[in-house]
Design a protein around this nucleic acid. Structure first.
Lengths: 310, 310
DNA sequence: CTGTGCTTTTCATTTACATAAAATGCACTA
DNA sequence: TAGTGCATTTTATGTAAATGAAAAGCACAG
């Protein structure tokens, strides 16, 4: 077992993006479910959960085996080999080259090193990759609404979230949509949906109260997203839920540029506000919940916006 | 000049989708600007307007020449050859094969002839086209939020608007978003944006009052979409505008199934309601406009929904 | 009856090359 | 000075074969 712990770049070459992605999600799932060491890992079960066939799941589990997180279970099958509560997925798993490029392009754009209008042929030599890769990336950007095809040649980056305007607009949109979700006549606080969200918040809060900082900035982002998306999902309106999810995708773009490392206290406050909103929702006090949510978003907006001064 | 009038399928083979699209937009522009016969047509001007180079514009104009709509201007250049006020663009121009396929797939899906989950390899033989074409179409659907990539293999169509639930949810969403657009602090009724919308409505209204029916069902759909999108665009909030546009895309998927041929009187009423809202907006009476819009959407919802009974 | 491990089949992506289309530049004209 | 017409360059798209990855099937163990 080599060195037992972290040696990432090994065998990073052989693993599809899907496999890496699955490995990360499986690891998160193991952690969040709090399974004990020795628990048997079922491939078909995971395959069902993530909506794929068993092949990529098996490959993903192999990655985890190579990291010493899983090991063989008696004669066949796999089991959990160690406690993963303290493990940060990104430290353990190789990152997909595609994902890296994605972030790199995003960063380059948000720092103005890429012009607003680009051509595929211009990007190919810049990032030393084939056209297919470039296309794939651009398509992903496009799916997230960050980039558009121009008629004729070229692509244009959205004005995106550069500039205070976009920030204001984003928060205005979120207030409109999320409050509408709460007010929806079909709104119903689904415990199955909200309980994990609450747990995640409590976990973070206790980490903070221990004086520790979060393992990764990404973690708060994900929990935050799960809160807003979970609330929207309770509206029973797929369009409201989709809109919230879409906004979160956009925001992820922003964060990964490296801006907005929230200070611990602000983070703690956000966490408490989320919990208060959950309390109100679960108690059926929807109007109060809406007021809290509106206030929460407004504050978040004020906190985020003055990052850049004009 | 052959037969002077309409002979569509001729030389439909040689013309890129962009060229055909431009030809249609140019024709609409000529019609909506009300230029007189003999007006000179400037290529660079059109190229600027549509944000492309002169090449595709020239090619598009050639298409119009072939239809007898333009002809040579003295020694060089082109001029408007005939009155186009009564011309329906779709009768004159060849339709791009890509566009046809797009509509066909949409229709097939909305009539349930395509399953929700599809693979590229399944579509290729079905529509007798290469993978590239299929990809292009799927990507277009994806950009409109109508289809999603599945992890692993295949694509999944959005739940779309099948079922009464989806209808209700769609209208709830639109009410939330469009009303938020009106209430936005940055809302500003932009005449440049709204004037063409108003003109289009007036044109339709006068057509109806003449006792005629609309040239194509598509026409009302486009005008209706331009109204709602135009209003949202005035909010100065790109996210609100995008959300409205996306809803319209979804609705188009629905309509193309051939449902919902609105009766003339309902159509006339919708038209008048739109105009009333425009009046209110342009007079700065935003609250009144919002009330009208909310009512308008609610009525439209009631009209559309009982189409299918459970 | 479910899960595993392996094999086979299906599907998607990649690569390189050929072709089509759009953008650009320039000489010339009104 | 802006516009046309044509030539050139740049850019993107289409095609086909090869590779790689995921899905589906099957025999067997618990």
């Amino acid at each position: 077992m080599d060195q037992d712990t972290i040696d990432q770049p090994i065998l990073a070459g052989t693993a599809s993006p899907l496999q890496i992605d699955l490995a990360r999600r499986i690891l998160e799932r193991i952690r969040d479910s709090g399974w004990a060491v020795g628990t048997r890992i079922s491939v078909p079960d995971l395959a069902r959960t993530f909506g794929v066939s068993r092949s990529p799941v098996s490959a993903a589990l192999e990655l985890l085996v190579a990291q010493g997180i899983l090991n063989a279970f008696e004669t066949r099958g796999l089991q959990l080999a160690r406690d993963v509560a303290e493990l940060a997925p990104e430290d353990v798993l190789p990152s997909s080259p595609l994902e890296d490029l994605y972030r790199r392009m995003m960063k380059d754009r948000s720092q103005g090193e890429l012009p607003q209008d680009v051509s595929e042929a211009e990007l190919m030599p810049r990032y030393q990759v084939s056209r297919g890769v470039i296309r794939k990336l651009l398509l992903r950007f496009a799916a997230e609404g960050l980039v558009q095809r121009l008629p004729g040649h070229g692509w244009r980056f959205a004005e995106s979230l550069v500039g205070d305007d976009a920030y204001r607009e984003s928060y205005e949109f979120r207030i409109a949509v999320e409050c509408a979700a709460l007010r929806s006549p079909m709104f119903r606080a689904d415990p199955q949906l909200l309980a994990p969200v609450r747990r995640a918040h409590e976990r973070i809060l206790s980490t903070l109260l221990d004086g520790k900082t979060l393992a990764s900035g990404d973690e708060w982002f994900r929990v935050n997203a799960s809160f807003h998306e979970g609330l929207a999902a309770c509206s029973g309106n797929r369009f409201l839920a989709d809109a919230v999810r879409q906004q979160n995708n956009l925001r992820r773009l922003q964060e990964s540029a490296g801006f907005e490392q929230l200070p611990g206290e602000r983070l703690e406050q956000s966490c408490r506000e989320h919990l208060a909103i959950l309390d109100a929702v679960e108690a059926g006090e929807i109007e109060w919940a809406e007021a809290l949510l509106r206030q929460h978003l407004r504050q978040a907006s004020e906190f985020a916006s003055p990052q850049r001064s004009p």
